[in-house]
């Protein structure tokens, strides 16, 4: 699979980043109801999912290094 083509190029990619930025700025103005303290940190709903997604991918990759790859290919 060619990776180039899975990356939204140019304008689309910039639009994505801009939208995220807009959501982050918007988050500063809405009234929030933090429950735990940590969710009161600005942009929590952006950086926490981001970090956890990165962590998940690396965890999955580590597990795949240890246990993979499956050899019995009736597995599909």
């Amino acid at each position: 699979m060619s990776l180039k083509d899975t990356l939204p190029r140019g304008r689309l990619w910039r639009a994505l980043l801009l939208a995220l930025l807009a959501a982050l700025i918007g988050g500063l103005f809405v009234e929030s109801h933090p429950h735990f303290g940590i969710d009161a940190v600005p942009g929590f709903n952006a950086w926490f999912p981001m970090l956890s997604a990165v962590a998940l991918v690396f965890l999955a990759r580590a597990l795949a290094r240890i246990f993979g790859p499956r050899e019995d290919e009736d597995g599909r």
Binding site: T6, P8, L16, S32, A46, P49, M50, A53, V54, V57
Partner: peptide, 22 residues
């Protein structure tokens, strides 16, 4: 307002991570 914005943050941030790590 907060529900919608925070949810958009989550979705957009995840999308960015996806393209970075694809």
């Amino acid at each position: 307002g907060s529900h919608v914005v925070f949810q958009l943050q989550l979705l957009l941030a995840t999308t960015v991570v996806f393209f970075l790590l694809r």
